[in-house]
Design a protein around this nucleic acid. Sequence first.
DNA 1: TTCCTTATTGCAAAAAGTTGCAATAACATA
DNA 2: TATGTTATTGCAACTTTTTGCAATAAGGAA
Lengths: 143, 143
Amino acid sequence: MSCSQEYTPQLRARGYRMTPQRHAILHVLCHSGKHLTPSEVYAKAQKQVAGLTEATVYRTLEFLAENGLARPSHVGNGRLVYEIANHEHHHIKCRNCGDEMEVEHTLLKSMYQKLESASGYQLTDSHVTFFGLCPDCQKSENV
Amino acid sequence: MSCSQEYTPQLRARGYRMTPQRHAILHVLCHSGKHLTPSEVYAKAQKQVAGLTEATVYRTLEFLAENGLARPSHVGNGRLVYEIANHEHHHIKCRNCGDEMEVEHTLLKSMYQKLESASGYQLTDSHVTFFGLCPDCQKSENV
DNA sequence: TTCCTTATTGCAAAAAGTTGCAATAACATA
DNA sequence: TATGTTATTGCAACTTTTTGCAATAAGGAA
């Protein structure tokens, strides 16, 4: 039923376990389709799992991120938000109004290659948040 | 004497003030030449300014970042670190061993242009931290 | 189904970061 | 140099995030 079910074998294969808590948290991420803060996740997931604690939410989100099931990204000043990791993309966020849009990975692909060959690093995590001014805010700045 | 002196006119021009606290914090950033956490900055700056509080350090770092004098970047899991903003660059960090290297902005330049024209956004902040595996850790993974 | 190993959780305390507000002190102006 | 405006600070309370540890429960093996 729930989209989170499909993740069970992925976790098991790596020696991890599927728990009601992880289940609920994955479910929340799946069905929101956008960035959520840890406390937003907590608020929603708590309804499904009695006794869920915030500490568990924090640990679970970090755990999911490490295992590639969730994508963390940095919004504003150092606060982490999470979303489900279903397709590869990035974000660009307006410093002024906070508006946010997705950026396709294809736009960054050749830069990634340049970066890898210049640094010798192999890029793993692929989510980046860029900051700038959205078209609307550019207009109002030019007054 | 101190490198932080030169920033005074920049602040004044925008209606801000140079204070002993800002002075000390800029000094610390200038002379460390690397990323520092807020508490590291606090520990060092406190020696120069009696009574400095951590709240002030947090506010000052954010203030300096907003005004382009300091560069915030995200390391590991959502913790913000700061460095002095003297030359435009990015970082690439190893997920495994934590090693970090600078990436020149020229490598990203054409991607930035593509991104701007595709999104309509005007990119302001330019610091990005990429994550990957450093050459050494790649070797040990391939065992 | 039962047992065992150990990954995972909840709890509680600690650490990290934020915020409102009154007091202070930069610094522009006279 | 003295004065007034207001940006900035310190304080203290608060929110957010992390951590150690003992109890719990997932799920492989018997």
